[in-house]
Design a protein around this nucleic acid. Sequence first.
DNA 1: AAGCCTTTGAAGGAC
DNA 2: GTCCTTCAAAGGCTT
Length: 471
Amino acid sequence: MTMPHMSSGGSEDFYSTDEVKVYKDEGNKDEEKRSSENLTEEKLGLVTESEEGKNTSLQANFTGSDKSSNTVSDDEKSTSGPAAPGHGPPGSLGFFIPPYASAYPNGAAKFGMVQPPYPGLVMYNDFAQPPPAHKGYSPVYTDPKTGLPRPPMYAAYPAPPGQFSHPLYSPEFTGASPWHRPGYPLTSGAFAGSFPPSLSSLSRYGPPSLLTHPGLGHPGIPHPASLGAVPKSELMSPQLLQDSHRQLNSSSHGDENSGCKSSHHGGGSGEETRKKPYVKKPLNAFMLFMKEMRPKVISECTLKESAAINQILGRRWHALDRSEQAKYYEMARKEKELHLQLYPGWSARDNYAAHQKKKKRKKDGSGGGSSGGGSMGSSSLSPMGGSSSMSSGGHLGGMCMESDSKSGFPFSGFSGECPNEKKCRARYGMDQQSRWCKPCRSLHEKSDQALVETDQKNFLLVKTKEEVHTL
DNA sequence: AAGCCTTTGAAGGAC
DNA sequence: GTCCTTCAAAGGCTT
C-alpha cells in the first residue's frame, strides 16, 4: 500500500513535516484496553500537545527539542508498536501503518475478534485484512450470530435490470443518504440503529426512479430528488437512466452540476455535457466521515471555511477509534459496490478529463511543477508539502480553536501580525515563497531569521556551556 | 466566475 | 510493485 504521506526524512524543517500522519500508526496498540473514548481524548490531547509544541517552536523558541516527536514517542511506547522504518527523527511516529494496516492485519486478534467494529455490522472473517474498499470481498455477508446471510444494508436501490440482486438492495434497508439528501429522513431498521444516523443509508447514486423501490418502507417520504435540490448528475445513471435523465433534464439540462462546483467540468462542449451525465466518484471513508462530521465541527467551532474544517476533520479522523473508522470504511465499501452496480462501466478515469483544463492551468500557474510534488500533486507525497504549517502548525489538533476572523483559519497566534501568512504558505508552499504576498513573505523571512538566530544563539549557548564545563 | 485551499482514500496510469 | 496524479465534499477566500 502506498504511503503517500511519508515524511521526507529527518531533515525537514521543524514545521514542515506532516505531523498529522502521526496518528496513522496508532494501530499497533496490542495492549490497548482503554475505552475508545478515553483513547480518543488522549489522542486528541496528543495531537494538540504535539502541535502546540510546534507552535511554540515556531515562536522563535526553537531549541531543537521536538516536542511533537516526544509526544509521539510516548505514544509509541504505549503502543509498543515498532518504530516506523525510515522515519526520520527518532520518535517521529509511524504513520507508516495506515489505520487498517494496523487495525486489521496484525490486529485481527485484538480488533476483529474482540468485538465487531460496530454493532450491527458483521464481523467479516477477512477483517484480518485491510478492508478498504478496493480490496473488496464477497457482497454476501454472514451474520455471525445466526449464520444466515447478513441482512442487506441498503434498500434504496434496486438491482439494475439484468443484474443480480445485490444484498444491498434488500427491502430491509431504506432511506437515502442524508449526506446528499438532507431532507430525506432516515428511519429504519437495524442498520439505522447501528450506524450513526447519517451512516444508516446510502447513497448518492440513487436515481429517483430507482429509489422508489418496492421494498422501500417509506413510500410517503418525499425523495429529495423530487425536491429538486439534488444535482441531477448524481442521480442519473448513464447506462440505465439516460432516458429518464433526459426527461428530468429537459428543462434544466445545462445545470447538471449545479449542486457542486467541483464537479463542474469546464471541459467538453455543452452538448456533450448534456448527454453525458457526470458520474462522481464514490466517496471514500474519510469523505463519508467528513460529510457526517462537518456540521458538527462547524457548529462546535463556528468555522465555516472548509479548508480549516477539513484540517480539524483530518485530526479527528486520526483520533477516531479503529472501530469507528471501520464504520466508514465499511460504508465506503458499500458505496463503492453500489456505485459499481449503478455504473458498471464507469471508471474514475472518466472524470479526469473533465478537470484536465483546470489542473493544467493550475500547473502552468505554479511555475511548471510538471512532475511530482507539484501543485496539487503534492498531496500525494505530503499533502502539506512545504506548506505544512497549516496542518502541522498545531492550530487545530482535532479541537476547536479560535479562528482568524479574516482568513477563517484556525489561528493560534503564529505571528500575531499577519494571519494570512499561513494562507500564503498554505496556498503556495514553502518552496514557492516567491508567490507569497509581500507582507507574508517579509514576515516569514523575519520570523525565519528570528528562528535561525535563536537557534544559533542556543547553539552558541550550549557550545559555550560545554566549553566552560570542559575548562 | 473560476479556481484555490485542505483533508484522506481510492483508482488508474506510468515506469 | 512503487510512484504519481486526479478526484471525491465543502464553503470561504483569492484572482
